[in-house]
Computed example of a mutant assay.
Amino acid sequence: MARVQGRVKGLDGLRALAVVLVFLSHKAHVDAIDAGKIGVWLFFLISGYLIIGELHRNRLQIEQNGARTAALLYVFFMKRALRIFPVYYLLLIALTIVHASFYQRDVDLGLAWHFVFLSNFWVGLVHDGWPGTVSHFWSLAAEQQFYLVAPFVLLFVRASRHLRLCAALIAAAACAHLALYETGAIAPLIYAFSPWNFAMLALGGALAIAGDRVSLRTRWSSAVWFVGAWAAIAGFALARADCIDCAQTPASATQSAGALLPGCFDIGLALSLGALFLWLVRRQDSAFVAALEVRPLAYLGTISYGFYLFHNFVPSRLGVAPGLYARLDVPDVAQPFVAILLQFILAVLLAHLSWQVLEKRVLEWKRPLETAIRNRLPARAAAAASQP
């Protein structure tokens, strides 16, 4: 029987941590770690875990209970549309109006690309750079592209093959990601348009599908995966370097092998995040999960979509007032933190208003619409039983 997915504790808190990392990357310009990349990859892991897990269970319903594929497709796209489209397109329409009037008129924002969820393609291959305050839309485009393809693949392929599909995508994306580094692709192309972004979604899905098969009976299971992931990446990098060394001169071989190292680090980092995520969803009684369930953090995760959309539009000059700080005797070292805090508070306020006024109300339509679709297209067994 298809297992019903219960609520996984800690996911809202993890979303909150992810969006804070993205905020710090864009506003505080944290350079010690690539906070933005880690934050976006955590979002991808969570989305893959939830969405692929849902589609996998839906396919099991088709196989075991005679559920209608068409009904499941309609329900899936209805849920995604209600969650993503209203606030996103309202923001884009407002942005189009103000951009034509006064806002960043000297910057090519590529708004037409964002309307059709091709932001990642535009950033990486057309614009060849980050387009002002809409640069973060690339990750929304990647997720939407995934949503357009995943249901047609997973609902029409037997559930027993889903895990292999995820593994194949991860392996192929890893090779493509390394190839981008090896060919000297520009950073925005690697960041926004690399197939590895889809691999992160597939990794989350693989964790959802294989969750019941993975034993975490010991405290060291995730640690073993963590070490194994980095060992596998190191082994692959060394093997690749040996192949390059055999085919090229020593100087060019060293240069090519060095170019691969950031890509190998990306893959190792991603798999490590997967190990952490697996530990979180399988150790629901841990202190870390309890900390993620703290109400303010969980609520920030709930409104994280709006926060992500709006945070980059908060002016970076907000809170920058040296004269005022001098009169208030605010230490120079604390002034940047005050500015960042004010920007964060404004982003939270905008996200809160978006959730309460629009997003939450729109999502209330989800259950009645789902009921109407399922009544219109009942499972085959139920339809047969209702016939005289």
Rank of each mutant, 00 (worst) to 15 (best):
A171N: 10
I170R: 02
Q145K: 01
V157W: 14
A159Y: 00
A167I: 15
L169P: 01
Y147E: 03
Q144V: 06
V157A: 13
R158H: 07
F152G: 07
R164I: 13
P151E: 09
V157I: 15
C166G: 08
R161P: 05
F152M: 01
A171L: 15
Q144K: 08
A173T: 02
Q144G: 03
A141E: 01
P151I: 06
E143A: 00
V149L: 15
A159L: 06
L154P: 00
F156V: 08
R161H: 14
R161D: 11
F146C: 01
L163I: 11
H162N: 05
R161G: 14
A172W: 09
A167P: 01
Q144Y: 04
Q145F: 08
A172P: 02
V153H: 12
Q145A: 07
E143W: 00
L148R: 13
R164Y: 09
A171G: 11
F146T: 01
A141G: 10
E143N: 07
A150W: 08
Q144H: 06
S160N: 14
I170N: 10
A167G: 09
V157F: 09
L154I: 06
L154N: 00
V153G: 11
Q144W: 06
Q145P: 01
V149G: 10
A173I: 06
R164W: 11
F146P: 00
R161C: 09
C166L: 08
Q144E: 15
Y147N: 07
Q145L: 08
F146R: 01
P151D: 07
A141W: 04
H162W: 03
R164L: 06
L154Y: 12
R161W: 13
A150H: 07
L169E: 05
I170S: 05
A171P: 09
R158D: 05
A150V: 06
S160F: 12
V157L: 14
L169Q: 09
L163C: 11
Q144F: 01
C166V: 09
A159R: 00
H162G: 06
L163E: 14
C166F: 12
L155K: 11
A171D: 06
Q144T: 06
A141T: 03
H162Y: 02
F152Y: 10
L148C: 10
H162R: 02
F152H: 03
L165F: 10
P151S: 04
E143D: 10
Q145H: 08
L163P: 08
A142R: 00
I170Q: 11
P151T: 03
F146W: 00
L163D: 13
R164N: 11
L155Y: 07
A141S: 13
F156E: 10
A141M: 03
R158N: 07
A168N: 10
H162C: 03
R161I: 04
A142S: 13
A172Q: 07
A168E: 07
C166N: 04
I170Y: 08
